[in-house]
Computed example of a mutant assay.
Amino acid sequence: MTATVPIGEFSRLTYLTIKTLRYYHEIELLEPVAIDPGSGYRFYSTAQVDQAHLIKRLRELNMPLPEIKAVVAAPDQAARDAAIRAHLERMEAELVRTRDVVASLQALLLPSTGISVEYRSIASYPVLSMRSEVAREDCDVWCDHSFGTLYGTLAAADLAPAGPAGATYAAEFFEYDRGEVVTFVPIEPRHRDRFDPATVLDLPARRFAIALHAGPFTEFDRTYGALGSHVAEHDTALAEPVRELYLVGPGDAEPADYRTEVCWPIGRL
């Protein structure tokens, strides 16, 4: 059995203010079951209490109102649960990101131990590659896709990589949050004819200032900052993309165990 109660009583039943209930009515999120034609006073059913509680909790989880409307209007329990579950997964991912940022901030408070820089000349070598203009926010997904494609192509040819995979990022990627990204996996020179020539690239010979980045990519900016500053202060950088080599990366280990060589080009051989 249900009953109809005025907006003030419904506010007490749901812990939602009258102002909030009026707003939810305006945006058609939680509408009263009846409105007095003379006074315009709103009335709600006690059957709406659970729905109001659901809306309140979703708002406490920072779910956007359009998504809450979709949850409330879901055709069945399964669809409603799927929408809530998707939001919870996004929140969990955000919590992980927040923990990473907190850890990074705490590290910034510690005295700097400096950076170890190695100088190395690397000869030209062929790689199987993919390139695309990529937005920074889409980079992780695109890199996962491209490396999966490259390793899949090698496996189909019954070949193993001839060295660590890597990537380069155009200056525009950093300057405008969108630019060309080239991912690559080294191949033996004798095998280059086994692949589509459009996918085979010869990385140019270069002399690099190199720093090892240990750990997840959330701290990558600090390695770039330290190595780039060292090069600016002691060498002359070439106006071309920095080369990253993934000695241990995604798919090989947990983020804490990643090992990436950041190679800053400073001259030709």
Rank of each mutant, 00 (worst) to 15 (best):
T2S: 14
P6E: 07
S11D: 04
L13V: 12
T14K: 05
T14Q: 03
Y15L: 11
L16Y: 00
T17V: 00
K19C: 04
T20W: 06
Y24S: 01
E28A: 11
E28G: 08
P32T: 14
S39Q: 09
R42D: 05
Y44G: 10
A47W: 02
A47S: 12
Q48W: 09
Q48S: 13
Q48Y: 11
L54V: 06
L54P: 04
I55T: 04
I55W: 08
R59G: 08
E60T: 14
L61Y: 14
L65P: 10
P66Q: 14
E67T: 13
A73Q: 14
Q77W: 11
A78I: 00
R80C: 01
R80T: 00
R80K: 09
R85D: 08
R85N: 05
R85E: 09
A86F: 02
L88I: 11
R90F: 09
M91I: 13
E92Q: 15
E92M: 13
A93E: 02
R97G: 15
T98V: 12
D100Q: 15
V101P: 12
V102R: 02
S104F: 07
L105Q: 11
T113G: 12
I115S: 05
S116A: 15
V117P: 01
V117Q: 03
E118K: 13
R120M: 07
S121Y: 08
A123P: 08
P126D: 02
V127H: 06
S129I: 01
C139M: 12
W142R: 12
D144N: 14
T149Q: 12
T153E: 14
L154E: 07
A155G: 02
D158V: 14
A160F: 06
P161D: 00
G163I: 12
A165Q: 07
T168P: 04
Y169L: 13
A171H: 10
A171F: 10
Y176H: 15
G179M: 09
V181N: 10
V182F: 08
T183W: 12
T183G: 13
V185Q: 08
E188F: 03
P189C: 06
H191D: 15
F195A: 04
P197Q: 03
P197V: 05
A198Y: 10
A198H: 10
T199P: 02
V200W: 00
V200R: 01
L203C: 10
L203V: 07
L203W: 02
A205F: 05
R206M: 05
F208K: 05
I210Q: 05
A214S: 13
P216S: 14
F217C: 11
T218L: 10
E219G: 15
D221L: 15
D221R: 14
R222F: 11
T223P: 02
L227C: 00
A232E: 13
E233M: 06
H234F: 05
A239N: 08
A239K: 07
P241T: 04
V242E: 01
Y246H: 06
Y246Q: 05
L247E: 07
V248A: 07
V248P: 01
P250C: 06
G251A: 13
E254H: 00
P255W: 01
A256E: 09
R259L: 09
E261Y: 01
E261T: 07
G267R: 10
R268F: 06
L269H: 13
